[in-house]
Nucleic acid binder design. Structure first.
Lengths: 333, 333
DNA sequence: GCCTGCCTTGCATTCGAATGCAACAAGGAA
DNA sequence: TTCCTTGTTGCATTCGAATGCAAGGCAGGC
């Protein structure tokens, strides 16, 4: 590999008959007379010169890469999130350095690697952050934002959906429509999304005098939802309403109900999801669900993180974006 | 932002009472006596030192970042691809610098930006590369791989599905099963996936004496497929078999057929897709389709690119991975 | 005891761009 | 004319780690 040497600022400097410093200033917004600027741009164009971002980041001690750490990739909600983040960050001139958390590992393993790249900030989606890592990030001074997980301690910003009012509303509407036996298909038990949605749902039922409901884990995957659906709806006294912590699990439940158990949805059982992934709106499902406004959440996340990078925003902020109940036909509501 | 200074190799050197060079060697596999190595590792642990990847890449003139350029993100096939690439590259110790091609723009706009980061290689997925860019990449000496698009000229490697035999097989099976009026729901007309699949399909029909078939663009999106389905199946003399260039469009066609036009699938019309996205296997769809073996394609892509980076592989290679016809119930076949 | 050779370590330089400071030119005020 | 101001430009240094080369230590062979 005799990799051809790329043109550097020195090459351009020589060609334009100026010093390297001037070339640098020409490309980073410094003061340069218009006549010289033109000469430099001409030379740069001829040589195919573009500043080396690595050198730039090294000397200026600030990179414009953002580390994006993604956990679970089974759930089609997250590809959407990832793609929104990439586009939004790109729009504001930032680059995305992508990390995925390998199945079975946790974020702690990859975060140090992210930091080796001296990213300007870190976004953690679909995963929580241990207090050990929170401390690490703080001591390194790397602004961090956790997406779609609430952080109850530490100094990390977070943006997530207002889970509790949304879950409460779902329970209220189901109750009001006359449902009496409930089921819940959860996600990972230790995530804030699961905990908060479950808690608000359970409390609302309890307030109406319903102390118990069936519960299964849907693992935030289609297959998990399918299995949970079979189990929860296969019983003699099956629920007449099932609330699912994620749409992808809800679709699994729906398929199991219709195609495996021969149930009518919503005739025999109402099914409600959470997320509003694209599939939820397809006619075969027409899933009633809580929409997480991804675009808004992502935009808010990015602006919060950028503010923190620029040192303007307060250190600790937990933003909650309200969800929206989308009524379709999978529930009598 | 008084960003706390991070520990450098000099700090570690001082703490371990060795020179900076020795610290560097300790972290990059050079020769260091075991006694000294231990001292260095102790000091590094205490200081929380990790080598700065940017400085490393700058001096050694090789980064371990791979630029991943993604086009179309509507099609759920690509999130899968992206996630597989991320995991596979991470597995071999590479990082992914992610770029998305903004809607309406082409790859030419983002490639120069990718190169500013002096990535070790570039993977372009879901988009083609102009010959101008191919020249640029060659002159910069950046190994490049195009995924899921055939490249007919230039010196760029590519990995894609063997589209023609697969499409031919679909046509043959549909013919054999007695279908006589055909429809095709295509993707973007200028992509090799569209062109190759369409061509093989058309040729096979022609060989059987069927010169004409209805054609619509499904835009490789659910909505596009839905609209195409309405148009193509809403006619008086509608096709009894529709082949779709992508699963996501096929699902749109299927929904339109069933829920808008009241057709029975496969009773009234057979529908066949291409990709085998997860949704295709869900009972509501049970889509007969051609599976693109994503894992194999990705693994092959990565190994090809790495080979090129290490200077071992030949410069030009077009790998074709055979697809597999997955028979489900959306087609009488 | 001395020389040879290997192994480990340190010194000095390098990658490519940013930036504080000094030098300089041009223009205006006194 | 002289002095001062303002605006450009260049010089020298810096970021943090890798690496060629030379120096030093130590063992083995003679």
């Amino acid at each position: 590999m005799n990799r051809p040497k790329r043109a550097t600022s020195y090459d351009v400097a020589e060609a334009a008959d100026v010093s390297q410093s001037t070339v640098s200033r020409a490309f980073s917004g410094g003061k340069v007379s218009s006549e010289v600027l033109e000469r430099i741009q001409d030379a740069a164009r001829k040589l195919g010169y573009r500043p080396n971002e690595l050198a730039r980041s090294l000397i200026s001690r600030k990179s414009n890469m953002i580390g994006l750490v993604m956990g679970n990739t089974n759930n089609p909600f997250y590809p959407t999130v990832m793609s929104e983040f990439t586009q939004e960050l790109q729009r504001v001139g930032r680059r995305v350095l992508l990390f995925s958390v390998p199945a079975g590992q946790d974020v702690d393993a990859v975060l140090p690697e992210v930091l080796q790249y001296h990213v300007a900030g870190v976004i953690i989606a679909s995963a929580t952050i241990s207090s050990k890592m929170a401390r690490l990030l703080k001591s390194e001074g790397t602004p961090t934002l956790v997406f779609n997980r609430a952080i109850y301690e530490g100094s990390v910003n977070s943006v997530c959906c207002a889970n509790e009012p949304a879950a409460r509303l779902v329970a209220q509407r189901l109750l009001k429509a006359g449902h009496r036996r409930f089921g819940l298909v959860g996600g990972q038990a230790d995530t804030s999304t699961h905990i908060e949605r479950r808690k608000a749902f359970a409390e609302t039922l309890a307030e109406a005098g319903i102390a118990k409901f069936d519960e299964e884990s849907g693992l935030n995957s289609y297959e998990g939802g399918f299995a949970a659906g079979l189990s929860i709806l296969g019983k003699k006294r099956r629920p007449d309403a099932v609330f699912c912590i994620s749409d992808i699990a809800a679709l699994g439940v729906l398929e199991a109900a219709r195609h495996k158990l021969g149930l009518n949805v919503p005739g025999d059982v109402s099914i409600v999801g959470f997320d509003d992934i694209p599939e939820a709106s397809w006619p075969s499902y027409s899933l009633t669900t809580v929409r997480q406004p991804v675009k808004r959440m992502v935009a808010e996340s990015v602006s919060l993180l950028l503010g923190q990078i620029d040192g303007k925003e307060p250190v600790r902020k937990a933003v909650r974006i309200p969800g929206e109940l989308i009524i379709r036909t999978s529930a009598r509501i």
